[in-house]
Design a protein around this nucleic acid. Structure first.
Lengths: 219, 219
DNA sequence: TTTAATTTTTAGATTTGTCTAAATATTTTT
DNA sequence: AAAAATATTTAGACAAATCTAAAAATTAAA
């Protein structure tokens, strides 16, 4: 099924809202898309007629199986492009969203599968969000504290718990970014500090306290 | 200036037709875009109002300076993406046009400049067409017979003169494709044959006759 | 349980890009 | 140079996606 850019944007937005609330309602989607409630109603009719949506007037709506599948396809494209922009083109992860928003609508299946292979079948995007596979399955990623990551295991930084200026200063210094590949080389029992290798940067030491507040996906 | 996809497609098409005929006329553009003459007239008015076009009713039209600049920007994006698809994603050059047709409308300047750098500032796309630089200047590429290419010079295969099945068989065997990087390692005076290195493939020997019929851009 | 407030939908208009059919201009032919 | 053929433009309509304003349905409040 060939969808217009608008239809794709609506589907993706509904998917995102759905993951937070059970049923999505017109006004919240209107707010999310910064558009009028009337436009939402118009598009809902259209998506319903294409059998992507469960929708009863005045009762809210949610994607059905087919709609969810479409959403995952679009999200997959978006996140793969984000990964590309950061890891290959060296763009900053804060900036790639809007560009990926455009690239995601290029729908060639061959393109996306080759891009995926070229990128090494990444499991999470630069914002730390999981990338659905070619069948639309979200990878299940267990998030653990860096201090609990076994040695030599390839992992990816997923989040940081403390966002104090002091912490941020240190993260910046070590070039620690969401999505950066990381590996623990050695741990020191004395103070819990770790010797780690982050992305392409030289090895460095991270304190035990930092290692408790940095979380990674063990892939 | 932000242009719609349609506007960009018209501009690009006019540019292409212009390179063949002096003035473009309504019907030829309609045929080229597989659309009605009336649509052409509609869009011409729009492009004229945006000052991209010299257009006098019933007298044909052509892009002005600003229009040409826009066209070159779009062509640059198209050809860079084609290069990416072939050289990085390993797609076949016959298949990349349609995908590049979609990618070319993603207009972030930063994206394109970073893509260009990432690809190594290529000068020709996989079809052998030159890629305009970031200022919109088409590179001037001198095309010479492979037999006249100096040793060790980095060149790119641009065309083949003879397209007999026998020739094609040989080209396929050696993996010779338009756009492949090529370098002459050694030449044998006795029969004019050359030892060459093509793309990532192992070194091979090409006959003097073949070397007369294969043309390259000396970059 | 009526009234008030909120949410959602409908009605009708607008913009962009397209179309067909008719009108007009230009070019070619006789 | 008038008629015929061709090319181009205009007029009017249509579909997609949006909007505003008004109507209808639902929910909350008094």
């Amino acid at each position: 099924m060939k969808l217009s850019q608008s239809e794709e944007n609506y589907i993706k937005s509904i998917y995102n809202l759905q993951s937070k609330t059970e049923k999505v309602n017109t006004n919240s989607l209107a707010a999310f898309l910064d558009t009028s409630a009337a436009s939402i109603t118009d598009m809902l009719k259209k998506l319903k007629s294409k059998n992507l949506l469960e929708y009863k007037k005045y009762y809210g709506f949610r994607l059905n199986g087919a709609g969810n599948k479409q959403a995952l396809k679009i999200i997959r494209r978006h996140r793969l492009w984000e990964f590309f922009l950061v890891s290959k083109l060296d763009m900053e992860w804060e900036k790639v969203h809007d560009i990926a928003e455009e690239l995601e609508h290029v729908s060639s299946a061959e393109l996306i599968e080759k891009l995926d292979r070229y990128l090494g079948n990444p499991k999470i995007d630069p914002h730390g969000d999981p990338i659905p596979d070619e069948k639309g399955v979200m990878p299940v990623l267990k998030q653990i504290a860096l201090k609990d990551l076994p040695h030599k295991r390839n992992a990816v930084i997923s989040s940081v718990s403390s966002q104090t200026p002091q912490m941020m200063e240190m993260l910046n210094h070590y070039g620690i970014k969401i999505g950066s590949p990381i590996k623990v080389l050695k741990s020191f029992v004395f103070d819990g500090s770790l010797q780690v290798k982050i992305a392409k940067q030289p090895e460095c030491i991270i304190s035990g306290l930092a290692a408790q507040n940095i979380f990674v996906y063990d892939t």
